[in-house]
Amino acid sequence: MKNLSDIEIIESVKRGNQADFALLVDRYSGKAFSMLKRLLKNQMDAEEALQDSFLKAYQSIASFKGESKFSTWFYRIVYNTALTILSAKKRKTEKEMVSIDEEFEIETFDNEIYAKSDNVNKYLFGMVDRLPPRYALIIILYYIDDMSLNEISQILGLSLVNAKVMLHRSRTALKDLVIKHNLQEELT
């Protein structure tokens, strides 16, 4: 049962097997939670948004026609749910999400995170969490979820060019930090 594809599970849920939706929850809860934590910067909000996202996905599963991958469709719901929570709370983060020209403020946290980290990976993961939400989200989707920039641009409602610019900016900002602390590895 666990080897079923997303589409097979969705068809089963559409036929009325509500319990099969749990397979999708098991499959995507970790990835969606990682996204939400980076977007909302708050564990409790992320947990609430995670449940809301799955509930919305279940309620609108009839409208999923399989034109895109389920993950793309579902992450779009997750992203919109996070935006709704952010705009409801009128957080500063909301302002940060308006434009791709937003300022990186990661330098502010650099010394603190660098001091706390005992290896380069831990340090860079900490810095990814300090990237502006959409930039961090792009990193998560691209590196952890192995999504293409095309899929990422669909989820975030961006043009492909903007998604690429944001990925490059994030990568370059992290690279600058690596050089600053002289952490670069020898090429193999």
Binding site: Y143, L174, Q184, E185
Partner: peptide
Amino acid sequence: LKAYKTVEHALREMELDDAP
């Protein structure tokens, strides 16, 4: 290039958070 490779290598090893 070395710095970019370091970033790339680290990000590829990033792990998902477990859902609660």
